[in-house]
Amino acid sequence: MSECYEYVPHRLLHRRVRDIASGTEGVLMAVINENVSDTGLERWMELAYIRGACGREFTTAATNVEPAPDQPKTAAGRRDERSA
């Protein structure tokens, strides 16, 4: 099994992001193309490393990363949309 990996550029690097799989938000620290296989066959995947509010980093597929909303919608904002 190869232990090689490479950093991949990402437009949201060092920005606040949301993992759509878990709903967790944090800062995107890195995106790395890694061999995620634990068998003899290589399986490469782009993993996003996100640092959560607690300071711990977790990984998710890079395709699961989206910009975090700046601020949540308020109840008043949702009411206005329904009345339109």
Rank of each mutant, 00 (worst) to 15 (best):
N33L: 08
V8Q: 12
Y49L: 10
G23M: 01
E81A: 15
H14M: 14
D19K: 01
V27Y: 05
G55K: 05
P9I: 05
A84R: 14
V31F: 00
P69W: 13
S22F: 00
E34C: 14
A84P: 03
A68C: 04
T24Y: 09
D70T: 14
L47G: 03
R78I: 15
H14G: 03
R15C: 11
N33V: 00
W44C: 06
F58C: 04
E81N: 10
R16G: 00
A30L: 09
A62I: 04
P9E: 12
G52I: 04
L47C: 08
G52F: 02
R78N: 09
E46F: 03
V36L: 05
D38K: 13
Y5S: 15
R18L: 14
M1Q: 10
V65T: 04
M45S: 08
R51Q: 15
R18Q: 14
V27C: 05
N64K: 07
S37F: 12
A84I: 09
N64P: 07
G26A: 01
A62M: 03
G23F: 00
A53Y: 06
S2I: 04
A75Q: 12
A30K: 14
D80Y: 08
M29E: 15
M29T: 13
L28D: 03
I20S: 05
A30T: 07
T63K: 13
R56S: 08
G26M: 02
T59N: 04
V8C: 07
L47N: 13
V31S: 02
A21K: 13
G55T: 03
H10W: 00
A76M: 14
P9C: 07
Y5T: 10
R79C: 06
D38W: 13
F58K: 03
G23Q: 00
A21M: 09
A21F: 07
T60C: 11
N64M: 11
A21H: 10
F58Y: 11
A75G: 05
D70R: 14
A84H: 13
A30D: 15
P67W: 01
R79I: 09
V8M: 13
E81L: 15
P9W: 07
D80N: 11
R79F: 08
R79P: 02
H14C: 10
K73A: 15
T63L: 12
A62N: 06
T63W: 08
T63F: 09
A30G: 04
R11P: 14
R56L: 07
A21G: 03
Y5N: 12
G23I: 02
T59I: 11
P67T: 09
S83F: 05
D19C: 10
R18S: 10
T39N: 06
T39V: 02
P69D: 13
L28A: 11
R16Q: 10
V8K: 12
S22M: 01
N33A: 11
V27M: 09
L28S: 06
S22I: 01
E42K: 05
V31G: 00
T60S: 06
L13H: 09
A53D: 12
S83H: 07
V65I: 15
E3I: 10
N35I: 00
W44M: 06
D70S: 13
V8P: 06
E46G: 01
P9M: 08
V31T: 02
D80G: 03
